[in-house]
Design a protein around this nucleic acid. Structure first.
Lengths: 328, 328
DNA sequence: CTGTTAGCGCTTTCAT
DNA sequence: ATGAAAGCGCTAACAG
């Protein structure tokens, strides 16, 4: 593998000059510039990243740790973040916590060893040891979509309150009174925010505040289905159901069909926080709050980059939109 | 940031000893071993990856370049690959080509500069310059799901022929004669293989070989919808449609509804190569070939690792299964 | 404008 | 079993 030394030799210049040219540095004579570039091209020279990193004490790499890359929200966010980072000359190391705290800590250790310049992460729960040590080392860090107790870091995520507001307005417009709510994990900031906004807003939107209509799930399909079944078993007859996230809504769908049959289930309007493209193909089609994962990803990158420059990074709550499919 | 020098000093041993202990190396006295480990823990020492890489000329990192991380097939594959790699002590650098050759080449350059030990990629098209240079450098490389013209590299992907066979059997069992086929890009090995298997197998399965029922899409939703419309515009009346991949099937669904209305569309059985979980919630539910992205991801990692050990890597065609949802 | 040199943090001989 | 020393490829500081 050609090194910068080879390039310098072939171009007939000193090591320093070669380095300067290759880094687009300030003053270099056009002649040597040309020859270095030519030599590099001929040799197929690619700078040795680790060596640069060692010397410069920065890697131009950002770590992105998501809860689950298979979750469309995160895969879209990751994609957008990568594009944004690349546009700014940064590479993104993408890793997956698999909704598991241990794996998350593992990844964080790897990131730390790679000496990433900054980190974006969607936390699994409370602060882990590795995270604490990264914070201590003053690595620029931003949080994605979920907050962490007792850790004050810039936050980039969905505007849950605004999104729930959209749903409340929609339900009211459609004239629903008996609306079931299948929520998320109460230990997750996302779950708490959505629940509070919804429960608190019911009365003002003409929605029943009967607690028999409300159950907490776990943001997973299984748990949500179970929660929905518990609600139905109470003998209530909701005309609509609001699922607190995408997976929850899928669980709701499953439970409704299982308990009521496809036809009766189809008579109940289902509204979701989080939109999946295929909701348009469900029957009846599902109305959903679409949160802009791309915008969050881009904003998060800009946030770490600001931190990297020593500027403060302001938290961002990205507004959602309602995809109304209730007209079939 | 604590360096190994700090650790050695604090443990009262030489640099070499510290390094040996930290690498779980052979012969080190229990006493120094203990003290080094203690010192490292107290200092929160994390080895400097780039420095190690520089010295050892390996990074213990594998590159994974997928066509589009938002495609569930790839996000699941990526997830499985990461798990498998981690189990073998390797980190995965995951990057996204965004179905764009230029971006792919960009990523490859970054990978090259990072000096990844091995590469797994799903090619966008023909070999790019950067890929050629990686091949030349003898970096272990395996291909995911798509082949490249003129490049002979171990391949890990779906068994398209077997999968299409499952569909043909299913269609025959259901008694379909007039089956429309919306295919993929003819320039992509995946598209070619599926088309060949399907078109060639029709006669033997009692399916009409009328070419008016066949159109090529582009493996994207838009293109597939257009292709489906072209077929319908010919005045044919298929009783079933086979979509050559997941996105294609979504396009098919959209086109059918748009042109025939929801009710008439629901009378046509749609079968898909690639399964999405929500196909169970479409109406009618969609029968699909499920290809095992996780198995492919794991096999691919094992392939590069074999190459890394100097062993040959045998290509793997992972068998698919049919998820039959035709009974509603 | 350019060549030389030091040294980033680490692993790995080479002597003990 | 361990300390000393060399050097991986690169950038930046220092002389010219």
């Amino acid at each position: 593998m050609a090194t910068i030394k080879d390039v310098a030799a072939r171009a007939g210049v000193g090591l320093g000059t070669a380095s300067r040219v290759l880094n687009g540095s300030t003053q270099t004579s056009p002649s040597s510039r040309e020859r270095v570039l030519a030599a590099a091209a001929e040799l197929g020279y690619v700078a040795h990243g680790p060596a640069r990193a060692l010397r410069r004490t920065r890697t131009d790499a950002l770590g992105l740790l998501v809860s689950d890359i298979r979750n469309p929200f995160f895969s879209e966010l990751a994609h957008a973040a990568e594009q944004e980072a690349r546009a700014h000359g940064y590479a993104v190391l993408l890793a997956n916590a698999n909704e598991d705290e241990r794996q998350a800590d593992d990844v964080l250790r790897t990131f730390a060893s790679q000496r990433i310049d900054g980190l974006m992460l969607s936390p699994q729960g409370p602060a882990t040891p590795q995270l604490a040590s990264l914070v201590e080392r003053d690595v620029p860090i931003v949080l994605l979509n979920r907050r962490i107790e007792g850790v004050d870091l810039p936050f980039f995520g969905t505007d849950n309150e605004q999104g729930v507001g959209l749903v409340l307005d929609h339900l009211q417009r459609r004239g629903h009174r008996d609306v079931a709510y299948v929520g998320g994990t109460p230990t997750m900031s996302t779950g708490v925010e959505r629940a509070r906004a919804y429960l608190g807003g019911r009365a003002a939107h003409g929605i029943s505040t009967d607690d028999a209509l409300v159950e907490a799930g776990d943001f997973q399909t299984e748990g949500a289905a179970a929660a929905m079944l518990r609600i139905l078993d109470r003998g209530v007859h909701p005309s609509a159901v609001f699922g607190a996230n995408g997976a929850t809504t899928v669980g709701v769908l499953r439970a409704l069909r299982e308990r009521l049959g496809a036809d009766a289930a189809a008579a109940i309007e289902v509204v979701s926080f989080d939109d999946f493209d295929w909701f348009a193909y469900a029957s009846p089609a599902i109305t959903a709050v679409r949160n802009d994962a791309s915008a969050i990803g881009r904003a998060a990158v800009q946030g770490v980059l600001a931190l990297l420059r020593g500027e403060p990074a302001e938290s961002v709550r990205v507004a959602t939109t309602l995809v109304d499919r209730s007209g079939h």
